[in-house]
Design a protein around this nucleic acid. Structure first.
Lengths: 264, 264
DNA sequence: TAAGATTTGTTCGTATGTATC
DNA sequence: GGATACATACGAACAAATCTT
């Protein structure tokens, strides 16, 4: 099938400047065309795209331009390339990790606070807990119990408590992973990740609060039971209490600031 | 300069194959280095990056390679470029639109359903309404009233109802815009956008339900009042009812499928 | 308006690296 | 090991955009 969409490139007919020129440079044009082409053809992940020489022929543009277009798509996770025979460019499904990273970059300059994150987590996590009730295999429930066991004992030092807190985030990340196919799961996973990326200081004055910590652990244990017993409402209720508690635990922690552009 | 720039890539000391080689190609390496450089220097949006010739000198790589690296960063919204004197590459803050677009691509192959979206909206929108209570200027409240006015009259045809539904999504998008600095606002705005992008068919059998529609409109009017009167709890309650209603309204609509990669 | 300077944008030819057979 | 098919990389020249004078 000849796709002679070629001669539009040079824009021979651009005499009238009646319209504002978005002035999209050529690599962007090519990237756009490839995107719509993929959509029109209904190509699925793994499908093969034309080779570089074919692209050069099709778009009547130089190798450099085509390659820059490919990089644009690659950065978005839309294509992947392989060298060697049988190699080439292929349609790629954007991975969860990459999507998380791309999103995190958006928040890099936004000075996200712990409280911003909890505002959303408080709303989302109970919903996720409810929707997971009765859905988890025995193996997965066991996995959750194993995580909780890692911070059974109250923390002695600030450092240890911090480590336990990271583990506790892992608990939520796991729950998100089990719901990963849903938008809900994706967002919860993302929140757990950026919360992890925040540099948390200003914890100097506050000593570890064993009461609250124990209460939080008990929540998680009770939650696992509710999940096992297929009781969505109870799971939701427990998670809600747990989130409000966690929010309080974080209250005296100030800082902010994402520490890096997340690579991939 | 002869070809001696080449052997630096492999790392002269790579005798043992002890480690797995991620084998990141040169444009990716350059992009990574620039990213960390930006973070280390604490560069802010608008800050200038080295020019192409300087990059070529610094990295000892060809112009093409440097340019491909720039495209990688550009696709993520991390830099922007300008031609001419005073031009060059600049650190760019990722825009909301671009972040929405990159995220939407992630869901392209995921077969998102209306119900997936509502699962999250039901959880998030009431929270947003509550946090907006008492925060909106008279002008913004007026803007919301104007939107509601657009669908004061019940729809006669299916097409008209569909148009009204789009307008109704605009109401929620506005609320998200007013909260745009928060993660919450970002996510709600995103959901409104992809819901808009979903091709909604299978509405053939169901005739417009005027009762439910009127109820929804009344919710929005009551919500505006609650926002004006700084009553977070009432705002949350109303929005919750509204979301559950909207979910029911959507119940008989099947389809799925995102219709395109969103460009930018 | 026009010319010149500056910086990115684009092309072409050629050479190198890599994976498959 | 050699042949093949593909992406990757280099370098020099030219084009286009945009700011300054």
């Amino acid at each position: 099938m000849r796709r002679d969409a070629t001669e539009k490139a040079k824009g021979a007919v651009s005499s009238g400047k009646t319209q504002t020129k978005p002035k999209r440079s050529r690599p962007f044009q090519v990237a756009d065309e490839i995107k719509s082409w993929v959509v029109e053809q209904g190509l699925q992940p793994g499908a093969r795209l034309p080779s570089e020489p074919e692209m050069i022929e099709r778009f009547q543009m130089s190798k450099g331009t085509i390659r820059e277009a490919m990089r644009l798509l690659q950065a978005q996770g839309l294509i992947a390339t392989k060298t060697g025979p049988g190699g080439g460019s292929f349609v790629g499904e954007v991975t969860t990790d990459r999507a998380h990273a791309l999103l995190a970059n958006f928040f890099y300059f936004k000075n996200v606070s712990i409280d911003d994150i909890y505002q959303v987590r408080v709303a989302l996590e109970p919903e996720n807990a409810a929707s997971l009730a009765g859905q988890l295999s025995a193996a997965k429930l066991q996995e959750l119990r194993a995580i909780v066991a890692r911070y059974e004992r109250p923390a002695d030092s600030v450092e240890e408590e911090r480590a336990q807190h990271i583990d506790s985030l892992l608990f939520h990340a796991k729950l998100a992973e089990y719901a990963e196919k849903s938008i809900l799961g994706f967002m919860i996973g993302f929140l757990a990740e950026i919360q992890n990326e925040l540099t948390v200081y200003k914890r100097l004055y506050s000593k570890p609060n064993h009461e609250l910590w124990r209460e939080g652990r008990d929540h998680q244990i009770a939650l696992i039971d509710a999940l096992r017993e297929d009781d969505p409402d109870r799971a939701r209720r427990i998670m809600q209490q747990h989130m409000e508690l966690a929010r309080r635990l974080m209250e005296d922690q100030e800082a902010v600031v994402m520490k890096r552009f997340i690579a991939e």
